[in-house]
Nucleic acid binder design. Structure first.
Lengths: 334, 334
DNA sequence: GTGAAAGCGCTAACAG
DNA sequence: CTGTTAGCGCTTTCAC
């Protein structure tokens, strides 16, 4: 087991000091073209690569960021994460991915852990609105789809209000008169906006509805089944088809609703039309119309913004960027 | 912006040297109960936490591992990754997640990058069999579902041969006479085993089939559609239903096959029965029978094994652990 | 029981 | 243009 090659080793071989090697490796300071070549050759020959930990300790930069995600198992999130990782990878950043499972406690714990491990920045994804109040927040943060109450974070979100509007408009356009809203039981910021947009259009058309037209169900892959059950129950109680259109704030929810309806022999889209949200492949492959969020851009923009903040070292004012959404029509509303 | 608190700061406050503080923080060396208390109180009061980078540089341990994954967007992988992360989190390890996109080049690149960032170990997940030959492999590695050709790595895999057998047995048991195999176009280790198991049972029952009964299609979420198309084409050419049972080496493939059949008005399971592989939620929600792999155990065991290897610092011989699989029956074979 | 000192591998002044 | 020096924050002998 030969000894690990360090910058000093290269320096000795090249007959210069480690400082000089450091300079050519970082394109900083000055050095002659000649020594540069000698060093570069040596580096290549021995496949020397500088120890990132030492560098990190010295420079207080780790080329590492953290991403805190509610559930990587959910395609909506994993696609955002993938986009983040791809963009970061190109720029030499690595990313720690942490599953918070929506728990604030875990988020905080991860935050501390990541800070210690020296991440240069953090991306928070979450449907939840609440966000810890870090007094000593020294690293840049960008949030996706959440609206923290403190400053010095950038925010990337997609136009949830618009998404809700699009859904309502299409349903009404297709002749639906009695709409049903299937939503997450929690009131995360994105959900609230979607619902607001949806209701806004309903009102514009003189349609109104109260709680009894809104079903709040569990959300998440593991709970999708219970969503269906809950839905079935409610439907059963009503004992008659009281609606002809459904807007679900998630594709999984839409899928649950669809299965429940099919279980009762209801025809889609003839009797009931359905629109989901996120446009994950589940929607694509089960022919569910859905509001598409540009997951790739969401991730890429967040990473781009974060790295900007990291590398400029300048306190940018809290900014917000909103991406457009679009309706992807499939069989469930045709 | 107050100065960051270091071990020296605590030492000064406590009126001792940094060495002593280090000792109590790491339960190492000796110190009096009294100084221990003073220090611990100070630590708590100021919420001091030692800088992980410095510690890492000094000790050559980072409490960090890397996980190289083909595609985190694929639920099969993301669930394994989640299990890894959960287990590691409990033990204070963080994990870098890297998407290789099945590219060997990227794998190698990530490998080097991670090594530099000082990860203590690595987990490789992949359907691909080929694995780079690292001469200078200094950190422990565990592989999930791949069989590298060099030593000093632990291997966790699930019983793919058995999975193939289970599928064939059930299909035959249900009265299928002409089986079709839909498989990945690449010959990754897990696929090969599944096919071997499947064919083994066929032979036992005097059923034989050649290439014309085997469709090789693309795989992966983004290519699922093209799998369907490819399949449709082939089916179309045959111009008649030449089979009554399908075994697909992936749930996505099974789903593609199902959609193709439905597009042609073929009844499932009356005319054709289908069994997929992996048992991801897609299978669950589209009522596809599937061979279940215990994704949570796969991830947990891999992480457990890796951390053992890391902390024991002893060269364990190359080991292999095979997990059992089971058939989950749903409508597609009932 | 405790501290002084050395040093992990690298970079950033500052001299020369 | 290049080298010396002085750490980054922590752990670890080895003296006392």
């Amino acid at each position: 087991m030969k000894k690990k090659l360090t910058i000093k080793g290269i320096a000795e071989m090249a007959g210069v000091s480690s400082a000089t090697v450091s300079k050519v490796l970082n394109n900083t300071g000055r050095y002659s073209e000649e020594t540069k070549q000698t060093i570069l050759d040596l580096v290549k020959e021995h496949d020397y690569r500088p120890n990132a930990v030492a560098k990190s300790l010295r420079t207080r930069k780790s080329k590492t960021i953290g991403a805190i995600v509610p559930d990587i198992t959910n395609e909506f999130f994993s696609r955002i994460v993938l986009a983040i990782e791809n963009y970061c990878g190109e720029l030499g950043y690595s990313v720690f991915i942490c599953n918070s499972n929506e728990s604030e406690e875990k988020e905080l714990q991860y935050f501390k852990e990541l800070e210690l491990k020296g991440v240069d920045g953090l991306i928070y994804l979450s449907a939840s609105d609440e966000l810890f109040q870090m007094k000593t927040q020294r690293i840049p943060i960008v949030c996706i789809d959440r609206m923290p109450k403190f400053h010095n974070v950038a925010i990337i979100t997609s136009d949830n209000f618009q998404g809700g509007m699009l859904a309502a408009e299409r349903l009404i356009e297709k002749g639906c008169k009695n709409l049903l809203l299937v939503r997450d039981y929690r009131d995360g910021f994105p959900t609230i906006e979607r619902v607001r947009g949806f209701e806004h259009v309903l009102r514009k058309h003189g349609l109104e509805f109260g709680e009894e037209r809104t079903i709040k169900v569990e959300v998440g892959i593991t709970q999708a089944k219970s969503a269906v059950d809950h839905y079935l129950q409610t439907y059963h109680k009503e004992n008659a088809l009281k609606f002809d259109g459904i807007f679900a704030t998630t594709d999984w929810l839409a899928f649950g609703a669809k299965q429940a309806l099919e279980g009762y022999g209801v025809n889609i889209p003839e009797q009931v039309k359905i629109i989901g949200y996120d446009n994950i492949s589940l929607a694509q492959y089960t022919s569910l119309s859905s509001i598409n969020q540009d997951k790739e851009s969401l991730g890429k923009l967040a990473a781009e913004r974060l790295i900007q903040m990291i590398e400029q070292e300048t306190d940018v004012p809290s900014q917000m960027l909103t991406l457009p959404v679009e309706l992807v029509e499939r069989d469930s509303t045709r």
